[in-house]
Design a protein around this nucleic acid. Sequence first.
DNA 1: CGATCCATTGATTCTTATCAAAATAGGTGG
DNA 2: CCACCTATTTTGATAAGAATCAATGGATCG
Lengths: 240, 240
Amino acid sequence: MKPLGARSIAHDPVIRRLNALCALDDQAIAALHDELNRTFSVRSRQELLHEGQEILRCMLVVRGWAARTRCVEDGRRRIINVVLPGYLVGYPGLKRGLASSTVVAITDVLLCTAPDSSVSPALAKAYAISRALDEAHLLGQITRLGRLNAQERIQDLLLELLERLELGGLAREGRFTIPLTQEMLADALGLTPVHVNRMLQQARQAGELSWHGGQVVLHDPKAIRRKVGRLKVRVSRPLI
Amino acid sequence: MKPLGARSIAHDPVIRRLNALCALDDQAIAALHDELNRTFSVRSRQELLHEGQEILRCMLVVRGWAARTRCVEDGRRRIINVVLPGYLVGYPGLKRGLASSTVVAITDVLLCTAPDSSVSPALAKAYAISRALDEAHLLGQITRLGRLNAQERIQDLLLELLERLELGGLAREGRFTIPLTQEMLADALGLTPVHVNRMLQQARQAGELSWHGGQVVLHDPKAIRRKVGRLKVRVSRPLI
DNA sequence: CGATCCATTGATTCTTATCAAAATAGGTGG
DNA sequence: CCACCTATTTTGATAAGAATCAATGGATCG
C-alpha cells in the first residue's frame, strides 16, 4: 500500500474533494488510494451511463468532465448538469438501481470504483453530502433557468463551476480550465449558441470575465455572486 | 386496529399512491392507518419546512397541496415543484437532515408522520421509489424550463400533475382539481402571469383544455404527450 | 359595501431565436 | 512545415416570443 499523508490528500482532486466534504480517516484514504490504482477510462463523447440502464456499481470520476443529459426525441439533448472530478456516478450503497439520466463524457474521463461506504463512516458521510450537494445543484439549475436572464445564467453557472472545482483544488482565484464549448453551455442554459457567444463578449467587454483557449477567469467572483443573488452552497453540514 | 381491506386501500390517496408505487403488505397498511389517525394540519400559506431548517421527522402529505420553493433575495419566490397527497416531506430514515428548500402550503394541508421504513420492506421500497420519482420530476422540470416554449411548458406541467394525481386516484379522464393560481403556475414555469393567461386562453380556444373554477380538464392527454414529447414516468421499477 | 385577490385585455418594449455566412482555431496527414 | 479538414467562434440581419406597464372586470370575504 502507498504511504499516506497530507501530501497525497492535497494532490488528488478526488480525495481532496471528498475530504473537504467530510474529513476522511485513514481507512477511507487507504480504500480510495487502493481504487485509484485501478482506474479505467472512457473516451470523450462516449456514454458512462444510459438512461434506464442498470447501474452495477457506483463510480468516482477521477479526471475529466462529464455531463448528465436527457435525450430527447428530436435528436437534441439537454444538459442537466456537469459531473466533475471527485463526483459520484451512480448511487452509493445501492445495487441494481436504474439510471435516471444519461451521462456522457465531455473530455476523456478517468474513473474508478467508489469504495463501499462500509469501509468508513467518514466516507459514508462524504458520499451523503456529495449526493445532497448534487440535489442542491439541481435546484440551482431550476432557479437559474426559471429566474435569470441570459447574461446572469451564464455567470451564475460559471460561478457554480468555480465553486465546485475549488473543492477539488481545480480552480483558484476565479480561474479554471473549462472543456465546454459555447454550444454545450447553451444546451445547459436553454439558450442558443449564438446568444451565448454574444453575452460572453458583452461580459468580456464589461471586464467581468475572460474566456480564451479553454481558460476561464472570473475577475470578481464576489461581485458576480452579489449581482446574480447567488448563495454559496454550504458544505460544512449535510444539506439533507 | 381498524379492519383492513381493499376498500380502505382504494379510498385513501396516501395508501393508494404508495400501494401503486409498491404493493403494500398488511404491516405497512396497518402502520399507515395508525398514523392517519393522528394527523395535524398546516394552514394555507404557512411553511411546512424552511430552507436550512433541521428536519426532525419525515412526514406524509395526507390532503392538500404544497410547493417546494427557493426563496430569493428580491422577495420573489421560485416554485421548484409541487407536493401532492401521498408525497413525502423530508427524508425517510434520516435523522437531523437539513431542508434543501422551503416547503409552503398552497392549500390547507393535512399531514401525518411517515411510518418508519423498518415496519415493512414494501413500505421502504415505496419510499425509495417515491424519492426516485421526485428526482425524476426535478429533471423533468429542468427539461421543461430549458427546452419548451410557454405553451408547451404549461401543457407539460399540467400533464405531469395529471399523471401524478392519477396515482393517488385524485384525477380521472384528464380531469382534476387544481388549487394553483395562474401566478403560481407562472412562478413554476419561469413566465409572467400575464403570459400564462394568454397561453391558457389560446389552449382553450384550440380546444386542448379547459380550466374554470379550479377544475382542469385535458381533453386529449395522449395528444398533448405526443406534442410536447413527454415520456410517461415509469413506476413499475425504481428509477434509481 | 369596500377591500382584496384573481383573471383578463391592450399597447409597447426588450430579449432571445432564427437564418445565413464568414472568420478562426485545432487537428491530421502528407 | 504546410495544406486541408472539421469544429468552433464570431458577425449581421430579421423575426418571434415573452416581459412590462397599465388598467378593467369578476369574484369572494369580512
